[in-house]
Design a protein around this nucleic acid. Structure first.
Lengths: 240, 240
DNA sequence: TCTGTAAAACCTGTATGACTAGTTTCGCAA
DNA sequence: TTGCGAAACTAGTCATACAGGTTTTACAGA
């Protein structure tokens, strides 16, 4: 285990906390730590970096916020597994503060999900196909319960992202779901007839079947169609 | 200005710091704060939430780490503008800890940049076209200086993302550049002849011209070709 | 009345010490 | 050898203090 060097060679960001953050990430890299591995305690770091425990704690909090490390009472900090929590916060903040529009989120999702659908068609396991088909059918079956349909919808898209076997896509799709939960009911209500709603549900089933059949082109095109129709529904409801 | 409620209705995350984070983000939402707007001081929040200043500070650090707020000495915290710093950290951490492969980063970039190229062709201003063409030509002109070519290359892609007018894409492309800086020289060296290198540079010029001409299909296809050839070069260098 | 400036008030960054509560380690006893 | 309990370790939170920025206030001069 390499000792942590206290000097602040990299990073032009000022402040002891920033330096500590750099030192800690360097420690993770230098020792090739993997998710689950433990970091030095606050007391040790505080000594090695010659800063107060306060500074180390704030650095730890910062790293935990971007999900590089996990913190919990009594235990040492550990290297974390990637997840979408931090990214979700950022996206929601962007929308809340009018820096990102709903349409922009939709376009990003469409772009990414056309790809996840194609990759899922190529790479999905049988177990994944069962899950994806299951969510699609659940949407059709429970279509009188909007909330339940929404949750199946979200799970459907996330499962496709997982089947694409690229964690970047999973994280991004996961991060968009907070916003999706806010806009989904609007799209649902703007589809005035049950027929329209079931038509949307049917696209999901067709998409699941394309993935099941291992047809990336069809999967990608169906995903595109799905997003285009959702965009139309939102437009009808006045979402810019 | 609404007062901040101290209760912790939302979020199952335990701990006073997590509660404070929730309370502060709720404050931003409830008061519809925009980038640049000031938050209450640590002392005020500490009083309103009935926690120590330590807790508020750690919450602030967490929010600053995900770039929801800006901190600086003596000044009150302000709502921040979105940028790619936090996302960069996450991506680099994912690669460092073997949770994300270089190929996965490339696929994500390819997916997104095919779209930014198409959108840029549709939406770019004349000023943006000048910048994009400028970067492409700089690559051709300075091609004996690898470092300079790389920086132009990165700036080229980022400018296209900007011209796509979707901040989500800008942030993502920006976030990938840290990794790109690490792998770029490998791809460059694996192109053994100057002819090969200039061929790559020429694709950039053609792409810039497609964007300039307002041809989204061509721009998208050239971007795809560019990534496919880069992937080939990396494959030749043994990057999985 | 308006303006410029200096002092006062305010605010964050960092350090220290203390105490609680959760976790790991280690040695002893069965 | 195993199981258990005490000791050592560790993080969470609080209170306090002070240095060094920043903003506000109030006063003096025009």
């Amino acid at each position: 285990m390499t000792a942590i060097s206290g000097d602040d060679a990299a990073s032009h960001a000022s402040g002891l906390v920033s330096s500590a953050i750099v030192a800690i990430t360097r420690h993770i890299r230098a020792n090739e730590l993997n998710p689950g591995d433990r970091l030095p305690s606050e007391a040790v770091l505080s000594r090695e970096l010659s800063v107060s425990r306060t500074v180390v704690r704030e650095a730890f909090r910062s790293l935990a916020a971007v999900r590089l490390i996990d913190l919990s009472a009594g235990k040492r900090a550990t290297v974390a597994q990637l997840d979408d929590r931090a990214m979700s916060l950022m996206i929601e903040h962007g929308v809340d503060t009018a820096q990102i529009s709903i349409n922009q989120v939709y376009d990003a999702r469409r772009t990414i999900e056309m790809r996840t659908a194609a990759l899922a068609a190529l790479r999905r396991t049988d177990a994944e196909v069962r899950l994806i088909l299951g969510h699609a059918h659940a949407m059709v079956d429970n279509f009188s319960d909007a909330d339940s349909v929404m949750e199946s919808d979200l799970a459907f898209h996330l499962e496709i992202a997982r089947a694409s076997r690229n964690p970047i896509f999973s994280i991004l799709i996961g991060a968009f779901q907070g916003i999706a939960r806010q806009t989904w009911p609007i799209g649902w209500r703007s589809r005035s007839s049950d027929a329209e709603r079931q038509a949307m549900n049917r696209i999901h089933v067709e998409l699941a079947e394309a993935i099941s059949a291992g047809d990336p082109q069809a999967a990608s095109q169906l995903m595109a169609r799905h997003f285009d129709e959702s965009a139309k529904a939102l437009l009808a409801a006045g979402i810019a």
